[in-house]
Computed example of a mutant assay.
Amino acid sequence: MENLAAKYTHIPGWGIDADPKNDPTYPMKHRTDEEQKGYTWERPAQQPEDIEILRSIERPNVSAVFGTSVPPQGLSGQIRRFAFRYSESSYGHWLPLLVADRVNVVEGILDDFKRGHVPNIFAEKGMKADWKYNQKALVQTVVVGALITTAVVVLFRNRKNALS
């Protein structure tokens, strides 16, 4: 263990909490287990709930404040509602939320087109910086995306021809 600690001593602040005598809460905090009593403080005023709020099944109430800028809507909203049926410790909660984020990106692009705005995906995804600092990864991403798109198009064409 000592060898491992010596290996990282060049990092500023490394091991600062290793010495129990250097506990930043001692001697100011006197441990009385008072915090185990639950809500012992006055709860802040509740933010009004004027939009749909998705809440964890593990929480009996909503937190005092929450985001309202993007309420769940469309297909991504349906996926999010599905995800919140499951516990936060479950893949059934987190994986659908990841999918919903990706679906929401596509919904946003389609919404831009619907409003007559052509999105500059190259700039919005930071590809200029990638081109400048990480060309190899950018080219790899573009090639993989093109291959996947081609495979999907070919798959759908083959299905269409097979059904005809």
Results as ranks from 00 to 15, higher is better:
Arg55Ala: 10
Ala100Val: 04
Lys37Ser: 02
Pro24Lys: 11
Gln47Trp: 00
Trp94Cys: 06
Val99Phe: 12
Val106Gly: 01
Ala64Phe: 08
Thr40Arg: 14
Leu98Pro: 00
Tyr26Cys: 06
Pro96His: 05
Tyr86Thr: 00
Ser56Lys: 07
Thr25Arg: 13
Asp101Thr: 11
Trp94Val: 06
Ile53Asp: 00
Glu58Asp: 06
Ile57Phe: 01
Val65Ile: 11
Trp41Thr: 04
Ser69Arg: 11
Arg85Ile: 01
Arg55Lys: 15
Ile57Tyr: 01
Tyr39Trp: 03
Gln47Asp: 00
Leu54Asp: 14
Pro72Glu: 02
Val106Leu: 14
Ser90Val: 00
Pro72Leu: 07
Arg85Tyr: 01
Ser56Ile: 02
Gly77Thr: 00
Val99Asn: 08
Ser69His: 06
Val62Arg: 14
Thr68Pro: 00
Glu49Leu: 09
Ser90Phe: 01
Thr32Asn: 01
Arg43Ser: 04
Val65Asn: 07
Tyr26Asn: 15
His93Val: 03
Tyr26Ser: 15
Thr68Glu: 11
Leu97Lys: 07
Asp50Lys: 00
Ala100Ile: 04
Gln78Pro: 01
Pro24Ile: 15
Met28Gly: 12
Leu95Asn: 09
Arg80Glu: 15
Arg85Glu: 02
Asp101Gln: 13
Ile57Gln: 04
Arg43Met: 11
Arg43Gln: 10
Ser63Gln: 06
Trp41Cys: 03
Ser63Gly: 07
Arg80Thr: 09
Ala45Trp: 08
